[in-house]
Computed example of a mutant assay.
Amino acid sequence: MSREISHKILIIDDDKDILDLLKYNLKKEGYEVMVERKASKSLEVARKFQPDLIILDIMMPEVNGIDVCKMLREIPDFNKTYIFFLTAKSDKGLQSLALGTGGDDYIEKITGLRALMHKVSTVLKKDLVISKRIKKIHLGDLSLERDKNMISYKNRVIILPKDEFELLYFFAQNPKKVITQNSLLNNIWGSDVYIFSKSVDAYIASICQKVGTHLITRTNKGQYKLVTS
């Protein structure tokens, strides 16, 4: 019987308690986990370990996480590796800087462990894409620009509210893939924000009304799929 290959996760954080907590919970989910407390050693460790995903703290002595991310992205082997920033700082400017240097997502430690675990599972186990460093997407008649929250569909320019834009952007990163309502709830709003399931239907109905009637379809099992031409 062939053994399923586990995904590899590297955690870089100078806080031992955070490292121990994340390592325990991620290993329990079947991931192979490596931890490193010294940011100055992170490139060497990453080269040897070759992780599928890196969880990176920002505020660390010696070298900060943003600089580590820059250096990782300059190495071809890590150009497509997921990098999630995990930080205690709630700062929009810092978030923009972190994502602008190559981070795929920015998760505040205050939002808790569940939000991180959901996102890790989404990209590694469910093979869905969630990357905020992808700034533009073009799919047939549909184009999206993250920096402007702007959508173009069949030569019409449409500005959507933030939640609707994030929903459509998530679908656009995963065209023609069937996506569950739980995946939408956990990856768009997070596990600590309570959103009624009917609200998801309402958001999607609003998107379809503004952009295209049959852009997103709903299956009999309550799942969704973006249909592009």
Rank of each mutant, 00 (worst) to 15 (best):
L53P: 02
D77Y: 14
L53T: 07
D13Y: 00
S40F: 00
I83Q: 13
K48H: 05
M59H: 04
S40A: 14
G30M: 12
L21Y: 06
I54C: 09
N79G: 07
K80V: 05
I11V: 15
L26T: 05
D57S: 01
P76K: 14
I11A: 12
E32N: 09
E36G: 01
D67E: 15
K27H: 07
E32C: 05
L10W: 03
K8A: 03
M34R: 15
K38Q: 10
N79M: 09
R73E: 11
G65V: 13
K28F: 08
V63E: 11
G30C: 12
L43D: 12
V45E: 02
K38R: 14
P76D: 10
H7P: 01
M59C: 04
Y82I: 09
S40K: 03
R47W: 00
D57A: 01
L56P: 14
D52M: 04
E32S: 11
M59N: 12
I54Y: 13
K80A: 06
P76S: 08
L22T: 12
N25M: 08
E62W: 01
M71P: 01
L43V: 08
T81V: 15
N79T: 14
L56E: 14
L21I: 15
E62A: 01
L53G: 05
E32R: 12
V45L: 02
D77S: 11
R37I: 02
Y31E: 11
K23G: 06
K16M: 11
V35R: 06
I66W: 02
P61V: 00
R37W: 10
T81C: 11
I75C: 03
L19D: 10
M59A: 05
E36T: 00
D67I: 12
V33F: 10
K8G: 01
E29V: 07
